[in-house]
Amino acid sequence: MEADRASFEVYVQARTAALSRVAYLLTGDHHLAEDLVQQTFLRVAGVWQRVAAQGDPDPYVRRVLYHQHVSWWRQARRLTQVSLSGADRPVDDRADQIGVTLVVQRALAKLAPKQRAALVLRYFEDLTEAQTAEILGCRVGTVKSQVRDGLARLRQLAPELADLLEVKA
């Protein structure tokens, strides 16, 4: 029991920063991201013994994080109304790095959570479609359509990013 607890705490220390980055991309808000990571670790703690016994806990933890995120959205739909820290800043039309980042951030916030999750998994976490499908608990075809629709929606929301978004879905 104590060994399990120790390994859990080591894992938490090692992975908090990485998961916080993903959570921030998903929620677009520092506080919500923190809550999401905290809730994820709470759930994982309850089944840590089983998760750790399977080897690498990352896939399971990631799955919990993404599902928790979608679950929040379903329950309160509060994530659709997130206030982005950079949302009030003027967008730089020159599309420099900072400006692009802000535009993407704002546009991401307007996507459906599953689309956002699919894009983050594919283009931030650099997972394959199959891995993404496994984490989201859906078929590969669904991942493809979520990514395609997500990119299309981004293009619609931010036409200035057309060049950036010409990716192979």
Partner: peptide, 15 residues
């Protein structure tokens, strides 16, 4: 896009 997302993620604060 990956680079933009990475840059965006770097704004996050460790929970």
């Amino acid at each position: 896009l990956t680079a933009v997302l990475t840059a965006l993620a770097e704004q996050s604060r460790p929970a």
